[in-house]
Amino acid sequence: MASVTLSGLRKEYGDLTAVDGLDLDVDDGELLCLLGPSGCGKSTTLRMLGGLETPTDGDVHIGDEPVTDQPPYERNTSMVFQSWALFPRKSVIENVAFGLKMDGVSEDERRERAREMLDVVEMGEFVDHDPTDLSGGQKQRVALARSLAIEPDVLLLDEPLSNLDKRLREQMQLELRNIHDAVETTFVHVTHDQNEAFTLADSIAIMHDGDIEQIGAPREVYDDPVSLFIEEFLGDTNLVDATVAEVTETGVIADTAFDTEVDVRTGDAAVAQGDGLSVSFRPEELDVERVEGTDGDGASAVTGEITDVLYRGSTVRFYVDLGGEHLFFEQSVGADTAFSAGDVVRVSWDPDDLLAFAADGARVGRGET
């Protein structure tokens, strides 16, 4: 195992800057996910860590050793790619032992270590099988065992589950988490799938435009996003335009696009009357009930009509028309309170649950009283 330190890491391709001065620390034995949309620089960052790309500027340390200028074969890292890249004419155990063979390990020792790693990934009964006879999930386990067999200080995973179907991908996420706990090796895992990152990670580093926007535990980055980009990227939310009408001791009263004032907790953030805000209403934080008429509208409630019902498997999403603007909320299928198109409902919320963002996308406060 080893820690990882990336300092001022930068990668340019001509006029394109793929990674822009990135700093990152990964603890010894940690499973960190680099999470972000396509093109944000996460795979390029991983490749620079593994030595497959040379930084334009910056430094890479694995443990206490500077490795920025070292080729991949001199770094004790191993990488698992989207493609399994197994040798079709070698057996499963020969595939897993291949890296050890290249390192000059004796045949008996490399076969023993390969068997151990196949047991770790629950593929011990397939040692003599042909890789072409395996399922996608089994092939990915073999590729993982091959990378672990050489006992890397850091295991690098570049979206290794993206080629699997949904059910198998979710199963492999849990297996990968268990494998990490068993081998106690430092993992750096790249993904664009937020659910995968939440399932796997000790820490999540969210990348945007070539740099890290926020890093923290999964619950932390979801509950306490630092920017509008992260709030939109992690899960679904209702974003409503608003204008600050009054500054209060705990936040602001803002006029919204659906003609209702909302009380937004912004603490002591620098917000002035007339400032524009984007206010986030997470669907899981909305309370909804059928009503008749509009009595009860105010700073924490609004009445509207359900216009659309969208079935999404285990949940149902309901869209509420608020005079031209819309909010959506969700319920589990089979919930006691089911709604239909045409129902008049009151949507309410706790002001402490609202998140507000300035025009530049920066967070201006949440739940501070």
Rank of each mutant, 00 (worst) to 15 (best):
S3K: 13
T5A: 14
L6S: 01
K11R: 15
D15F: 03
L22V: 07
L22S: 11
L35Q: 02
L35V: 00
K42E: 00
T45R: 00
L46F: 03
L49I: 02
L49V: 03
G51I: 01
T54N: 01
T56M: 01
G63E: 06
V67G: 07
P72R: 01
V80Y: 02
F81Q: 04
P88A: 13
P88G: 08
R89C: 15
N95H: 14
F98H: 01
G104F: 03
E107Y: 02
V121E: 06
M123W: 05
F126N: 01
V127E: 12
L134K: 04
S135L: 07
A143N: 06
L144P: 14
L144C: 14
V154R: 12
D158F: 08
P160G: 11
S162Y: 02
D165P: 01
T186G: 08
F187L: 12
A205C: 10
G210V: 00
L228C: 09
L228I: 05
F229E: 03
F233R: 02
G235N: 00
D236K: 05
D259N: 12
G276I: 04
S278K: 13
G296E: 02
G296P: 04
A301C: 05
V302F: 06
E305T: 15
V309I: 10
Y319C: 07
G323L: 07
H326P: 01
H326G: 04
E330Q: 13
V333T: 07
A341R: 08
G342F: 01
D352E: 13
D353N: 15
D353I: 05
D353E: 15
